[in-house]
Amino acid sequence: MTSARSIPNVTDERLCWLIVREELQKKTSKLRFFGWVTVLFSSRTRGARLGGDLRREHASDKMSDYAVAVDAAAQTLSTDERKHLRAAGEVPDWFLTDVERRYREFRKQR
């Protein structure tokens, strides 16, 4: 992930986000059924641009929700986990599972 020398001087919550952001970005950019239908049946028209805009907006909304989940999960880190986060630039093994759980709960409430 990140070497100890390149760990930025930011809050633990922000550091967690920087560490997991790329992996979460991959999840949100996957095309689902509607995305593939848009890609396959659109040409270089206004509709194709609109479909792309909708997909990007949806992915952005998901990333915003993931950011809330990462922040909430980071607040539950123990002192030892925070030390490891700062020293190694790694989140605990349970972290992404907890983020996914919080993300699903947050999306369900919307």
Rank of each mutant, 00 (worst) to 15 (best):
S78M: 03
S64M: 08
V37P: 02
T76W: 12
L40C: 13
E81M: 09
G89Y: 09
Q25C: 02
T11P: 05
D71R: 14
D65Y: 05
T11F: 03
F33T: 07
A69R: 00
T28R: 10
K83A: 14
K62N: 03
L96H: 05
S64C: 08
Q25M: 06
R14Y: 06
D61F: 09
W94D: 15
K108R: 12
F106Y: 08
S42C: 15
K62I: 02
Q25E: 11
L77H: 13
R101L: 07
A48M: 15
A74H: 08
A73C: 06
P92Q: 08
R44V: 05
D53W: 13
K30A: 04
S3F: 03
C16V: 10
T2V: 08
E81K: 10
S43P: 03
V37E: 01
A4H: 15
R82M: 14
D80P: 00
A69F: 01
I19G: 02
D93Q: 12
S43H: 12
D12A: 15
R32I: 11
D61R: 12
M1E: 06
D61W: 10
I7N: 08
L31N: 08
E13S: 15
R102S: 04
L40V: 13
D80L: 12
S64H: 08
R32G: 12
R102H: 02
I19K: 00
A48V: 03
R82L: 07
L40I: 06
L50N: 06
R21V: 00
T11D: 10
H58L: 11
T28I: 08
R101M: 02
L18P: 01
F33I: 11
R44P: 04
T28G: 04
S64F: 07
S64W: 06
S3C: 07
V37T: 07
K108W: 07
R101K: 11
D65C: 10
I19Y: 00
D93Y: 12
A67T: 00
T28L: 03
S78G: 11
E90T: 11
Y66H: 00
T76G: 04
A67G: 02
R49F: 04
R21D: 04
D65T: 09
L40T: 06
R21K: 09
A73H: 02
A4R: 11
R44N: 14
S3N: 09
E100W: 05
D80R: 09
Y66G: 00
K108F: 10
L24S: 01
T28P: 01
V68T: 07
R104L: 07
H58M: 11
V70C: 02
W94T: 15
L24R: 01
K108Y: 10
P92D: 03
V91A: 10
K26T: 02
E81Y: 08
R101Y: 05
G52C: 05
R32E: 14
P8M: 05
V70R: 04
S6P: 01
G51S: 07
V91T: 15
V70L: 03
R5I: 06
